[in-house]
Amino acid sequence: MHRFANPARFTRIADRVLPFAAGGAVLALALGFYLALFVSPADYQQGESVRIMYVHVPSAWMAMVIYVAIALASAVALIWRHPLADLAAKASSPIGAGFAFLTLVTGSLWGRPMWGTWWEWDGRLTSMLILFFLYLGHMALMNAFEDSQRGYRAASILALVGVVNIPIIKFSVDWWSTLHQPTSVMRLDGPTIHPSMLWPLLIVALGFKLYYLTVVLLRIKSELIAARLRALDLAMVKGS
């Protein structure tokens, strides 16, 4: 388990992966957005505004995937005390929050022509809002301690409690929104969606995943460098 705990080894592996991840992200996003903006058809009801979906839906996926990734990293950090898992959780949280925020903003922009309002208490958007708050809490707790180790540990426990609660929250919000007249503008009916719309969606989603990988690796690297600087500072103080 501690095979990758050696910072030097991690940095070597990260440096090898990074060009592919970054390059792949640029390619996938360029291709995905080209298909989304120019090739895929406009919706006969929603017109051109349907193209917001190609950002909105993959962002929503990412916001959820990243929270699960944080929970997994947290479990690894708590069980095996693996230092890189802590850093991965710390690096992921702001990215996940960013995707959740992007989902909310694009949802609002998409909803404007559909509903005529900037915000509707639709089940999906409301769940995403709560997920966004969970991210903010995770980030705040992570940074609330003088001793960074305590921040990591507390945030790990919170992430695990959060991941247990997310299905309950999701269910309760769906329940609540069906009680108060469902709004079904954003219903995407999975596999029945036309391929000309599905492909760009999947390619953008892949691009987002590679983007996430790139940024997480970069952020972990910079955390390691910061830790090394702190250790050197400490050594200097001792030495003088």
Binding site: N6, P7, A8, A227, R228, A231, L232, L234, A235, K238, G239
Partner: peptide, 8 residues
């Protein structure tokens, strides 16, 4: 000795 392994 104060050069822990964090300094690699």
């Amino acid at each position: 000795p104060q050069l822990p392994e964090m300094v690699w």
